[in-house]
Design a protein around this nucleic acid. Structure first.
Lengths: 217, 217
DNA sequence: ACAAAAGTGTTGCATATACACCCATGG
DNA sequence: CCATGGGTGTATATGCAACACTTTTGT
């Protein structure tokens, strides 16, 4: 392979994460505001370029840390965007991940050398995004709704333990529709993605709920 | 983005297709023999580098044509392989597709400038492959077996019409196990991925079977 | 004993599985 | 009329959806 060949040279890989949360019953996504061209001052999903010595998973984690200060984020591969013109300066392939975390358990770094702001946005209040990130976000939201029921994708929202009523409310917020409370319970319990811990929540004023956790692996 | 930055420069994208067939009841994969370093004289899956002006889908189709002479192959995205050392000369991300075709309806170009041979291999007779293609082939085979029942991934084997007994035999060959003939019929008919054409096969010596086709889109 | 929220159960419908018989054709 | 292979049906089990009642706690 001739790395001077103009057909191949100057290709790059974007690693992007659509990071979601549920805060006070509201479904939100994390965006960062760019400090440099291209798309200076525009909001985009968290991400950046993959280095030569990294897997895309490693690059995705590094970029998340560099641009938001977040570490150990649980993410799932989503898909690849490869339109040659999706980035204006050079040809950048995009490898996109999806994650969900509890925004109250972390603090987001607002400014870095490459970003001038970072914040959680309600899904119906997202501004036009740089690159093709508006399209990516739309697709990623659909994907999350589908995969919530048969994957550990929601583990990041409840990394330790949770009650079924808590989980139920989070699912309703993301799906933006009502679910049968009792069937939801049966569905999740029989799915094999969560397991009981045998403990009860610390409560006040009502019947304490049982604590569950997402299964390991 | 600084394209002289050694962290980013000289990255490339491999587009790879695990192309399968069923010939005389035998499940096979198409391999090509390399003519150049690296992995000179070794067999690999069909693929090559993505150009700057192509989507990965377009590159996948071009590479398929250049290295085998095959056009209009129906493929499905499988996954990304990003180990930085998976290619020895430079960092190459791999975007992998899966397809299934009828090998009797096409002729494979044996030699090109980059390949010195091309052939269908029984899955249990595949030699050690170049790059990380042995691992990719193993993963892709698993994926095919799972997706056969709820996607159009098998459309390439029967691009026009087929009978249910023909389809049944192909499925058994790929899964390498027995299925209930009558339940297979009901499963496929109710899946919505195939539809009857109203016609019968041209037969000799037995009851003619009805012809079906994969639904459009 | 009451309010509030957690937890459990039942029934019907749809889908999947296991299994047996009938039908159309060519020779 | 028979051999070959295609096509259909039924009974059972399993999974999902709609729906109502009981339990536990703090006050």
């Amino acid at each position: 392979m001739d790395i001077k060949n103009p057909l191949y040279k100057n290709q790059g890989i974007h690693v992007i994460t659509a990071l979601f949360t549920v805060e006070d019953g509201k479904f939100k996504v994390l965006l960062i505001k760019r400090n440099n061209e291209p798309f200076k001052d525009m909001w985009i999903l968290v991400g950046g370029a993959c280095y030569n010595n990294e897997t895309v998973e490693e690059a995705m984690k590094r970029e998340m840390f560099e641009k938001t200060g977040l570490k150990n984020i649980n993410t799932t591969f989503f898909r690849v965007y490869s339109n040659p013109n999706r980035s204006p300066l050079m040809r950048m392939l995009a490898v996109v991940y999806i994650g969900v975390i509890d925004c109250k358990k972390v603090s987001i770094q607002k400014k870095t050398t490459k970003t001038k702001d970072a914040d959680w946005f309600l899904l119906d209040r997202v501004p036009p995004l740089g690159y093709d990130h508006s399209e990516i976000l739309k697709d990623a939201t659909e994907f999350l709704k589908e995969k919530m029921f048969d994957s550990q994708i929601m583990k990041g929202l409840f990394p330790k333990t949770f009650t079924l009523p808590e989980l139920y409310k989070a699912y309703q917020s993301i799906l933006d529709k009502g679910l049968d409370r009792r069937n939801f319970r049966k569905l999740l319990l029989s799915s094999g993605i969560i397991e009981p811990t045998g403990q009860l929540e610390a409560t006040s004023g009502k019947k304490p709920a049982k604590l569950y956790k997402f299964c390991e692996k």
